[in-house]
Design a protein around this nucleic acid. Structure first.
Lengths: 329, 329
DNA sequence: CTGAAAGCGCTTACAG
DNA sequence: CTGAAAGCGCTTACAG
């Protein structure tokens, strides 16, 4: 293995000088810098991460705690965080959600990572107390129920729901149905689900609309039952807050002879990919996974480099009108 | 931070004894073990990963190089590798495919990880020479074109294709079409795509069947064009080797009034989740992501703990008949 | 069965 | 602008 001593010898300087060239923590004469950098390149030197972390108590590793289920949105988040981490010269340690609080403590206590980014935070997340007690930089993607003393970023789900209703109200719709997340999502206490539902309920009421919502599993039978229930109100528009069920919903509407958007307008909350994949491009409020992931990394790094007070950042929703919504039939 | 010295002091033993209790590398008297383990628990001691790696030249970290695109199968692989890694007390560093060969070298040279697991290996993958030159444990998930001197695991895609054809032949089908992966997949030189196509072509021919294959993007227009082309041969069965296009294909068949399986049998290569999500449960050859991920971790760990000659492992395909295939109409 | 000590490869005050 | 040296927290021969 090539060490800093090898580089120093090759460059005719002290090891500490090589270290300072690498870290930029003190000024180096141009010549010295040149010859050191040359040696580094020639020898293919890479500082030993463990030695560095031991000496500096910094790992330059971020730990991402992700729920590894089959879900395109999760993938989007992971990709966004990975790419943002790299932009900040950080490596990424991947933990799964089911490893629980112990794993979080272990990773921090054993100095495997400097900070944590936690996806899929639930209303009364059992990991919250642990996270707080770590006294380390943490950013949550998602919103816990009450202020926790931890920094978090999320889409403003209530506002997202409002935007959906406003859009449909503008088009003259008076009765709307909502295909919600799976029952399990509500049971897990995913706050965004409640906030979205609340936002939808409130603004439907404010707009004097008929409104009914149903949770919906992502398999055919669940979708059929859900639509059976919703269609009883004879809605002219559907808000789908369930990306996995989305293709099934569209297929089932089709099967029932309901044309989108002629007979039924559809607004979906999903990734842009899912929105533009089917026969009819969908009007959506998209989940800004890339933006949220990038933000999370930036906030956690700001915490690493200097203490920051905890803050909660809610991104305003963006509704993109596409072909799946039209004026009330 | 709690160090091994704190634990040793609390337990009234030497630091080395604590180390040996932890590693099990020499026999310890039951009393000593007990008191040390108590101190460890009481103090909440976690060995410093960097110090450990520096002293032992082992990190207990595996690096996973994954293509972070929106793809459920990729998610399955990542989840499987993460879970298997944890079962072997290894942590997981996540690298993205687009970081290229330099990142691989960096991660190994800087002792951030002991070994690499590489997903989505292509026929003439530019990372192969780097990977080989690392002289470190590496397991590829996927198959490079020619023996590379590296260990790899994959589904036997040619055999998978054969199984599809046999199944359809048994049902009396004489003309089949294949909805292939996106053109980009062939352009990237993903070997499994070629092997599957070759397997399908060969065994269709061997069975005296009419056969036509088309690559297919995963958006509505691409699927429509693809089906237009395929249906000209009046196939009675379709093999879909494109999980992302699958829901669109099914929707489009429906739109054309082709009932599955009455008018058209469908065999898909996809995850079991995707198979059982729609109105008609699909006959599939499933991609054994969990099994491949677990195997990859086991093989790489066997390489870490003792030199292993490179080997190539191809898992036999498993066809699960469901409701989407029936006898020729 | 256990301890004392060298050494892993860095960073960073300290000194000039 | 640069160097010599202590120290980070472990593991592992060496010794008994």
């Amino acid at each position: 293995m090539v060490t800093i001593i090898d580089v120093a010898r090759a460059a005719g300087v002290a090891p500490s000088t090589v270290s300072y060239v690498l870290s930029g923590k003190r000024s180096i004469s141009p010549q010295t810098r040149r010859v050191v950098e040359q040696s580094i390149r020639k020898l293919g030197y890479h500082p030993h991460a463990g030695a560095r972390s031991l000496a500096s108590s910094r790992t330059n590793v971020l730990a991402l705690v992700a729920p590894l289920r089959e879900d395109l949105t999760v993938m989007d988040f992971v990709a966004a965080v990975a790419s943002a981490a790299r932009d900040h010269d950080q490596d990424l340690l991947l933990l799964t959600k089911d490893e629980g609080p112990t794993a979080l403590r272990r990773v921090i206590s054993s100095a495997l990572a400097d900070a944590l980014i936690v996806l899929d935070v639930e209303a009364a997340d059992t990991r919250l107390p642990t996270l707080l007690s770590l006294g380390r930089p943490v950013v949550l993607i998602g919103t816990p129920s009450q202020p926790t003393g931890l920094t978090s970023v999320d889409l403003d789900h209530a506002a997202a729901a409002e935007r959906c209703v406003e859009h449909l109200a503008d088009l003259g719709h008076r009765s709307i149905g909502m295909v919600g997340p799976a029952p399990a999502v509500y049971q897990r206490g995913v706050n965004s689900a409640f906030q979205f539902l609340r936002g939808l309920t409130d603004s439907a009421q404010a707009n004097g609309m008929l409104f009914r919502a149903r949770p919906c599993g992502h398999n055919y039978d669940a979708v059929r039952d859900c639509l059976d229930a919703l269609l009883r109100l004879e809605p002219t528009a559907l808000v789908v807050h369930n990306e996995s069920a989305l293709p099934i919903v569209l297929a089932e509407l089709h099967r029932r002879g309901l044309r989108v958007p002629v007979d039924m307008s559809v607004v979906a909350v999903c990734s842009d990919t899912a929105a533009t994949t089917g026969a009819v491009p969908l009007t959506t409020v998209s989940i800004p996974a890339a933006e949220l992931g990038t933000l999370a990394v930036e906030m956690v790094i700001r915490q690493i480099t200097g203490a920051m007070p905890p803050e909660t950042l809610l991104l305003p929703p963006q509704l993109t009108p596409r072909a799946s919504t039209a004026s009330r039939p």
